[in-house]
């Protein structure tokens, strides 16, 4: 073979080299974020801080700057994920268990909804929210976030539910359990890891969403961290890069933790991508 197939060792070295180079390009912007957050005199360029200090973190960790927005983010993302998971379990159950005539068009509808660019809708959504007097309402925004994440969540939940064997449920029905009892006592406990993936997937999406609360919420007391970081950037952005980076890190930490949890504990980093792939 010699001539035709490249030596595996050369190949391995080459791939390692290329990959490391790409990784470096990917890592640089992230390293800036990390280093700048410990540097009280941070600039926009990556550099080692002269003195490592936690000053930036203590500066932003005030109720006004960080805690209220983070709490708002928690309410928005948590509420959204809770509603979404509940509704998608209820919607996915009949889709997964019964062969009905509406199943196929409904699934197509769900898939279609998955594909629509939500950003495109924000201008008309704003008009609708004005009409219903829901502007600046946390509840309204949470409901909207839940609605936008429902299509993908229903699709994922259905896929997870399909892998729960139906025979156990049939046994329960024989024993006289109602459908709701079967759902809450048998199906949901069996697909707990799947539901956790859906919950976290939706939570991460809602936590990171900037545009929706940016358009729909107005009063500073209700803004989630995504938007308050942006206004922080607008007010002090040109001077306090270190604080900005520290706040950004604090805000990113929960979703990174959740992602690591999903990929390590709930099986494979491709769990999410796989669920999306269908």
């Amino acid at each position: 073979m010699g001539m035709t197939s490249p030596s595996h060792r050369v190949m391995k070295t080459a791939s390692n080299a290329v990959l490391l180079l790409v990784t470096l390009m990917f890592a640089l912007p992230l390293m800036w974020l990390l280093l700048a957050s410990f540097d009280t005199r941070a600039t926009l360029s990556i550099k080692l801080p002269e003195i490592f200090s936690l000053q930036n973190f203590t500066d932003v960790m005030t109720p006004e700057t960080a805690f209220t927005p983070l709490l708002n983010s928690l309410i928005l993302a948590g509420g959204c994920a809770l509603i979404t998971v509940t509704v998608s379990v209820l919607a996915a159950y009949p889709l997964s268990r019964y062969k009905m005539r509406v199943n196929k068009p409904f699934l197509y509808g769900v898939l279609f909804g998955t594909g629509l660019p939500i950003t495109a809708m924000m201008v008309p959504v704003y008009a609708v929210f004005v009409a219903f007097n829901l502007i600046d309402s946390l509840v309204g925004t949470t409901l909207f976030l839940a609605a936008t994440s429902l299509p993908i969540a229903i699709y994922m939940t259905k896929n997870f539910m399909d892998s729960v064997p139906i025979s156990i449920e049939e046994a329960a029905w024989m024993d006289g359990a109602s459908m709701l009892t079967t759902l809450t006592h048998i199906v949901i406990p069996l697909m707990r890891p799947g539901l956790a993936v859906v919950f976290i997937f939706v939570f991460i999406g809602a936590w990171g969403n900037f545009f929706v609360p940016f358009v729909l919420l107005l009063s500073p007391g209700k803004l989630p961290a995504a938007v308050s970081i942006f206004s922080f950037f607008g007010q002090y952005g040109s001077v306090a890069y270190g604080q900005l980076a520290a706040f950004s890190l604090l805000y990113s930490l929960p979703v990174i933790t959740l992602y690591v949890f999903v990929s390590r504990v709930l099986g494979g980093s491709s769990a999410m991508a796989g669920a999306v792939k269908g």
Binding site: V22, A27, L33, N209, F210, A226, Y259
Partner: peptide, 16 residues
């Protein structure tokens, strides 16, 4: 590193 850039919230990625 590649996945971190993806998992980060949009706004943080945008700042970076």
């Amino acid at each position: 590193f590649v996945v971190t850039a993806w998992v980060l919230p949009e706004i943080v990625a945008a700042f970076a």
